[in-house]
Design a protein around this nucleic acid. Structure first.
Length: 216
DNA sequence: CACCAGGCAAGTA
DNA sequence: TACTTGCATGGT
């Protein structure tokens, strides 16, 4: 396919000029980013924010509090995020891994080589590629590109990739053609999400107001 | 009322 | 390997 690194750079520059800096997941602790990354699986962020507020209001948004909290109590506190039983278990799986393998030291975990850390995250039940990569990029500051349904939708709707390509293919597309720069990957992913929400909604045709243009 | 939202794992053939 | 289904709340 005629997909060049020039096109990936062009997309970035058009969106960056249109939206400006989006400053995603700013001023939050790595721990809070991790919790949010699990809670937001297939779920609107406003629902996740309610859960984070509940935890914070109860003074329970901390590594030790969540690690030791009964699974059922955690489920109640994150109820608004949906799939709360599942996500309670998934959060605990993640914290228990950090406890067992890094003695509960998150910064030690993030000091690992990002590709090793990614394999470790993917071994945790409930942590898939998008959640793992969000944690590595937005909590760990590692230059790992995050792919999501929006990324897939924008590229496929503009005819740049086949509908059928998988997570790894799309991630490789970005990581093989862009500098491995965490700030760039952060902003690029945020731009794609913003663009999809405004101009590339599900079950709608190609939008002629998209800053990428109908043809790119 | 139907549909969507920053997924993932388990089951089926 | 390639589909399908369960998980669940809250906003539009």
């Amino acid at each position: 396919m005629g997909f060049t690194s020039d096109q990936l750079h062009e997309i970035y520059h058009r969106l960056d000029e249109y939206f400006g800096p989006l400053n995603w997941w700013p001023a939050k602790s790595p721990f809070e980013v991790i919790v949010g990354a699990v809670l937001t699986q297939n779920t609107n962020w406003t629902n996740v924010q309610k859960s984070l507020d509940s935890l914070k209001r109860a003074n329970l948004l901390s590594y030790d509090a969540l690690l030791h909290m009964p699974e059922g109590q955690l489920a109640e506190l994150i109820r608004s995020s949906g799939y709360y039983n599942l996500k309670s278990r998934r959060l605990k799986n993640l914290l228990e891994m950090v406890q067992a393998e890094y003695g509960g030291d998150l910064s030690l975990f993030f000091s690992e080589d990002p590709y090793s850390a990614r394999e470790t995250l993917l071994r945790v039940k409930g942590i898939g590629p998008e959640t793992a990569d969000s944690i590595l990029l937005y909590a760990g500051g590692h230059p790992i590109f995050v792919v999501d349904t929006y990324t897939h939708r924008i590229l496929s709707r503009h005819g740049l990739i086949p509908e059928s390509c998988d997570y790894q293919f799309i991630q490789d597309l970005f990581m093989d053609n862009l500098d491995h720069d965490a700030a760039l990957f952060n902003q690029y992913h945020a731009l794609l999400v913003r663009t999809a929400k405004r101009f590339c909604k599900k079950r709608e045709p190609l939008c002629d107001k998209c800053p990428l243009g109908p043809l790119l």
